[in-house]
């Protein structure tokens, strides 16, 4: 019971989210009645299906970002080379400067339409926050612990895994949290290139001047982002 109360905020978000996607019709009639619903469109796909697609995309792209960012971060840290570190950081910064929408569009000639370009763009964009935070976490290990580890005679790899990594966990999770939240919102753009997720409904709402569709899909996106924010924050213990 105590656990439930401690996590009450994230549970609230989760509950609201699930209620929304499963019971939207009820919500539409009783709460959102004031929004002019012209009901011109027949829904070909349900909100729940969109939710599943959206989460798949977000989770997959976050995992890819995490994998790449961690590999890069570890290789930079193990190499101890400032040159390599600067190079990787510079490339990642470019990755963040490039507008997500432009990357998505540019990937279409290579990957075609669909989820591919979206996954690529989101993964690239997510690398920098995770990389930067991981490197920060790894380099902020207090001197004393660092020297104790050296004194124990562990190899760099062992040091990394057994000592430095666990200590840097809070930072790594901060980076993952930032990347994931950005992903949740940015994934909506993918609908313009045929990707799935809530973006599909938002874009069709724009194209047909149906505010209800926009609200219908935007609220769960916000809830999802808030939920990830809560969950990933708590995990950094």
């Amino acid at each position: 019971m105590k656990q439930l109360i401690k996590h009450r905020v994230s549970i609230t978000y989760a509950v609201l989210f699930l209620v929304w996607i499963f019971q939207f019709d009820w919500i539409k009639m009783n709460i959102l009645f004031f929004i002019n619903d012209q009901n011109r469109l027949v829904q070909r796909i349900t909100l729940v299906e969109l939710a599943v697609q959206h989460m798949q995309i977000v989770i997959l792209s976050s995992l890819i970002s995490v994998a790449i960012a961690l590999v890069l971060a570890f290789s930079v840290h193990l190499s101890q080379s400032k040159e390599y570190r600067d190079l990787i950081l510079q490339f990642s910064t470019i990755g963040e400067t490039l507008p997500t929408a432009a990357i998505i569009a540019l990937s279409v000639p290579i990957m075609g339409y669909g989820n591919g370009p979206l996954l690529l763009a989101l993964s690239i964009y997510g690398i920098l926050p995770i990389l930067r935070n991981t490197l920060e976490g790894l380099s902020n290990i207090p001197r004393s612990i660092h020297e104790a580890a050296l004194g124990l005679g562990l190899t760099s790899m062992e040091r990394l895994i057994k000592i430095e990594l666990p200590l840097a966990m809070p930072n790594i999770f901060t980076g993952i949290r930032i990347a994931t939240i950005i992903n949740v919102s940015a994934a909506t753009i993918g609908a313009t290139v045929g990707a799935g997720g809530f973006g599909v409904m938002i874009v069709s709402g724009i194209r047909t001047y149906e505010p209800l569709l926009v609200v219908q899909a935007s609220v769960p996106v916000i809830l999802l982002a808030l939920w990830f924010d809560r969950v990933l924050r708590v995990s950094s213990h």
Binding site: I181, S185, A186, T188, I189, G199, I202, V203, G205, I206, Y209, P211, V214, V215, A217, S218, V221, I222, A225, L226, D229
Partner: peptide
């Protein structure tokens, strides 16, 4: 604001302005 998708904000603003 940062949490809400830009697309949604654009769309939601269209209606009252219209």
């Amino acid at each position: 604001f940062q949490v809400a998708p830009t697309l949604s904000m654009l769309a939601l603003l269209m209606i009252p302005l219209a």
